[in-house]
Structure formats: structure tokens, C-alpha cells
Design a protein around this nucleic acid. Structure first.
Lengths: 321, 321
DNA sequence: ATACGATATTCAAACGTTTGAACAAATATA
DNA sequence: TATATTTGTTCAAACGTTTGAATATCGTAT
């Protein structure tokens, strides 16, 4: 680990001042082409790597964006992060990731850590375990915040969500058009905005089609595969079991399919299944899960662009191109 | 966006010097308990957030770790990043992620960007498109580097890999034990270490079982689903087509299965398939892909711990607990 | 009273970069 | 020739924190 070359080393090497070197790098119009070239050459020869820490401190811009998600291993979030990283790194930003594991305390801690790192903005999806949202409010006062998927009504920030209401309507209509009569809903917890909206969409779709909304058909859970399994089993023991389900996520939909396969109930002839989210595996399982596309790739790009816009507006930039 | 509170503000507020405040925060033994408490209270009241940029610059430690992978959307890498983030954030580090998209140029750029951000260490998996490795060598000279999965023999750094050789042997033995006679290998490019090793394992396993190694049965590719499809098709047109394949990753294995399903070739009765990597979907597709477990979660934790160890050794830390 | 070691705090420089103002030299204008 | 303008560079302070050395304020032992 040999000592790092700084702008001062270059300056000494060329017998000019550090400030000239700095200006050469940023292509300042008042620096002669001769010096600019000399600086670039010297930088190459001395193995110079700019130190963004110092630059960030002086300029008041870290070039860092924080991304906070419940967990990276969910393919929905992984895909989002992928596209966020792609768009942001194109604009010269670095992306710090952190996970809340759907836990409130951890979410608070991670947000603080991001703030401490002086991120210029944060893209986040709220932990399902969070009931109070003061931590987000505090963040939003100090730094641009974009929420996606798991958002919060009372927060006045940019939000990127799929149209959950329309998605539910579509899903239920799809099942009805295929002739299913008794459609159940494996739902997420209704204190999380998109899940509540999906429940409403589900109910409204049934009502618009003059179908009965049965409370015992709406089961809230954490939307894991296991939840799908146990709920499906429970549904099948009802006096009047459903003949189709609409799941608020693909994972429980998969769980449900497993149960149906086991019980030799044929999909889609005897039972209809629609998921929500488009996890990567949905096209691979058998039978294929019909799913409401959440366009996760798009969502990430949109979130990133929205944040970039915001930053752009804040910093009236001056650069000598 | 109101202006941020600094250590100086606290100092002024309490009519002491910034240096006393700083020392109070780091629990310096020579600062009185009274002042420490006063500082903490003032910090709370004024809404102070430490600025790690400044601290990093002064201390020469950024608290940042860079992670570079081909792509976050692969569940193998997503899982690794998840566990890396978990272990590192527990130790107070922040994680910057970047993707090479398996592209050489981008990999170079991303590494530079990480160095510029003054990361204290890098955890990476080499892009399959990289043939020259000078960029990694340069990085390794300046900063601790841990490679995982896609590693490089000529680089003298810590490496976390699954035992590729044994994995291949196991895979092939498994197929042989099931009675398959002509086992083909959908391989990765052999300039990437683990793929070369897997090829060797495949060959050795065949030879140890007195089975013929046929060159036309070993097909190198980028290991995508599409590669699996086209290679499987090609294999089936051979004069003596194989009756089983061992794929160096789960993705082409899935592609192969699709082709076999299409051609109504029954798995596993008529044709055997084994993959490598344990992508999340392998247990969900039908028929289920037998796969060599890569323990990705473990691998991430190991990589992170190995880096932490290394950093620990470098910085003989002095902290007043 | 005097010196002494503790204890608590301040001083001042440093980390590497950026930036407006100041300056000098060269060129253009009158 | 004197003055204004342009061009290229240096000066010096700043960003917010940390840290070893210096200093001040004690109580305590001489």
C-alpha cells in the first residue's frame, strides 16, 4: 500500500500550485492548454487518483446516493437496485445500499448511517415492520427522498408506485373473465399502502361485477411462500372454498400452487391463480404463474431519474465543458 | 433543507472549543463526564449529524467498502450482496455497489470509481468479459481486495470460492450413478478460473469412471438461458447425442430443460440434468433442477469477514471504549 | 509557599480539494 | 506611450473533523 499521490504532488512535480492543478482537472477556461496537458500527463505518470472525500467536503456534494430496501435477495428489489445503480452510475453517482430486513429499528439505524455518510439523496422502500414514520420525515427535511413500492401517504416526497389499484382490478377481472366464481385474496398487511390499495381494488372489482365480498376470503399475511402454503390449505377447508386466488405477491402464489399440485387440483382448469409482482421465477414454475407486471426494472430507473431531476434542480451547476 | 449542524455549532452553543466536542464524542478519557453529557445533550437538541466525509478525510479512513459484481439481478449475486451488506454494516461500514455487466471496460471504470470514493477495501467477482487483469492488479496494490466465485489465479489476494473441482466431480458422479452414459458439459469460458476448474473436474470424473471424454461434448458459452437452449439443440443433432448434461450454471440448465420439454424428452427418465450454483428458481421449475449448492449466503459472509480481518490487521485501532 | 502530578481544556495544524479574489504578464486599444 | 483588456497563474481561506502538543486549573504532597 504505497502512499497516495495527491494534487499537491502533481503541483510540486510541475512546479506550479495545487490550485492550478485542480483547475486544470476541472477544465477551467483560464488554464492554458499547455498546463492542462502537462497536468494530465503528470497525473498519469504519478498514478494520481482523485480523492472524492476531499472534493466532496469542499464542494458540499458527496456524489453518493443511498438506497434502502427491506432485502436485496428478493428479486423484485434486486432488479430495482440493478437499474438504480445503472442510471445513477451513468450520472457519476455512487450507490450505497442498505437493508432494513423489514425491521423498524434497523431501518432507523440504516437511515442514520446514510445521513452520516452525507448522501445527496435517498431512494427507499419502507420496511413492513415500521408503524411510526418520524424517521422518514426527519430525513425528508434534510435530503431529497424518493419512495418506491412501499410508500407512505403522509410523506410529501416523490413516489414511484405501480398502479396497485388498477393492477388488482385487472387481476380480478382476468379471473372473472375466465369464469371463476369465488375469488379469494392472499393479501399483505393493510397498514402498508400498496397492500391496502390492492385489497380495495380486489373488493371493488368484485363489487363492480356483482360478486360477493367475503371476509373469510381475504387473508392478510407476510406474503412468503410458507404463508401461501398455509393460507391455501386453510382456504381449502372452508365450507365453500374458493375456486381462484389473487395473491398480492408472487411468493405466496407459488406456495398456493404447491399445495394445489399436491392435492392434484388442476390449474387453470379447476383453480385459477394470479400473482402480483413478477418475481423472476414466475415464468419458470409449472404451471406458469399469471402475474401482474410490476415493471421493476422501470421502477428503478424512474426512481433514479426522479431523484436525479430533483438534485439537478437543487444544484444549479456550473461546469466548464 | 436547513443548514446542517456541525461540531462547531455545538462548541459555540456550549462555549467550548470544537476539539473538546470532538473528543467528547469519541469518549476521550481526558474529557470530563460533565462536558460529555453536555455535548451529547446539545447534539440532540441541535439535531447534530456527524459528517463522515470530514472525519474520513482527516482520519484517512472512509468507512466505505466497494462491492463489484457482474449484475445484481442474478440471485446468486443478490444473495451474496445481501450477506455482505449484513456483515459489513454490523461493523459500521457502508457498502457501495457497482456492476460490471460482465463487460471489461465497465469493470475498469467501476473499479476506478470505487478507488476514487476512497473505499477501504473491495469485494469483487470478475466480469466474464475480462481478459486482461491489470486493473485488478493495480487495485490490489493500493487497497485490500477479496475475490469470490470468479477469481484469478495470478492475483495474490484472498479468494472465496466453492470447491469447484469437487463440485464437478460430485455432479458427474451423480449422473453416472443414475446410469447415464454420455454426459455432456455446458461450460463457462475457461479463462475464468472456476469454469476451467469445473471443466477439469468434469473430465477427471469421467476418466476415473473409465468413460470417454469427447471434445464435442464440452461447449463453452456465456452461461445464459439462451446459451443453454442453443447448445442443447446443437447437442441433440450430434450423431451420438448425450443422454445427460452437467451445466456450469443453473441458467443454461434451465434453457436445456426448456428444449427437452419441447421435444418431449422426459427428465430424468430419458435425460439427466445437473446444474451448478443454486439459483433461487431451481427448486421451482419443473422438473426441478438438480444443482450443486454454492452456498452463496455463506460465501458473502466469508468474503466480508475475510476483508474485515484484513482491515483489522492494517489499522491497529485505538479507541477509548 | 512551592513544586508536582492529575485532570480538563484549548491551540493549531492537518487531511486533499475547490474557488473567488488578487496579481502579473501579455496583448489589444486608444 | 499610456491604458484597458485578456489570459494564465497564485493566494488564501474554506469544507468539518481529528489529534498531539501546549496550557491552564486543580488538589495534594513536600
Amino acid at each position: 500500500m504505497r502512499k497516495k499521490t495527491t494534487i499537491v504532488d502533481i503541483a510540486n512535480y510541475l512546479s506550479i500550485t495545487p490550485s492550478a492543478v485542480s483547475k486544470a482537472f476541472s477544465n477551467h477556461p483560464r488554464i492554458s492548454d499547455k498546463t492542462k496537458k502537462a497536468v494530465l500527463d503528470a497525473a498519469e505518470k504519478l498514478g494520481y487518483q482523485p480523492n472524492s472525500l476531499a472534493s466532496a467536503l469542499r464542494k458540499g456534494r458527496s456524489g453518493l446516493i443511498g438506497v434502502l430496501v427491506p432485502g436485496i435477495h428478493f428479486s423484485f428489489f434486486a432488479t430495482i437496485i440493478k437499474s438504480i445503480e445503472e442510471t445513477l452510475s451513468e450520472s457519476g453517482y455512487s450507490v450505497i445500499i442498505s437493508q432494513s430486513r423489514d425491521d423498524f429499528e434497523l431501518e432507523v439505524k440504516q437511515l442514520e448511517s446514510l445521513m452520516k455518510a452525507q448522501v445527496e439523496g435517498i431512494i427507499a422502500s419502507i420496511a413492513s415492520g415500521s408503524k411510526s414514520f418520524e424517521h422518514y420525515k426527519k430525513v425528508a427535511q434534510k435530503t431529497p427522498l424518493v419512495l418506491f413500492d412501499r410508500t407512505l401517504k403522509s410523506l410529501d416526497v416523490n413516489k414511484i408506485v405501480v398502479d396497485d389499484y388498477m393492477g388488482s382490478i385487472k387481476a380480478v377481472n382476468h379471473l372473472i373473465s375466465k369464469g371463476y366464481q369465488r375469488i379469494a385474496h392472499i393479501a399483505g398487511y393493510d397498514h402498508v399502502e400498496p397492500f391496502r390499495i390492492r385489497i380495495n381494488g380486489y373488493k371493488d372489482a368484485l363489487q363492480k361485477n356483482n360478486m360477493q365480498v367475503r371476509d373469510e376470503y381475504i387473508l392478510q399475511c407476510k406474503l412468503t411462500i410458507d404463508d401461501g402454503i398455509s393460507i391455501m390449505k386453510k382456504l381449502l377447508t372452508l365450507p365453500t372454498p374458493p375456486d381462484a386466488i389473487f395473491a398480492a405477491s408472487d411468493l405466496p402464489a407459488y406456495g398456493a400452487i404447491k399445495v394445489l399440485n399436491e392435492k392434484k387440483i388442476k390449474i387453470p382448469t379447476d383453480f385459477g391463480v394470479v400473482g402480483f409482482s413478477n418475481e423472476a421465477f414466475t415464468s419458470m414454475v409449472s404451471p406458469t404463474i399469471t402475474t401482474i407486471e410490476q415493471y421493476s426494472e422501470n421502477m428503478g430507473t424512474l426512481a433514479a431519474k426522479s431523484l436525479l431531476d430533483h438534485l439537478h434542480r437543487i444544484y444549479t451547476q456550473k461546469e466548464y465543458i
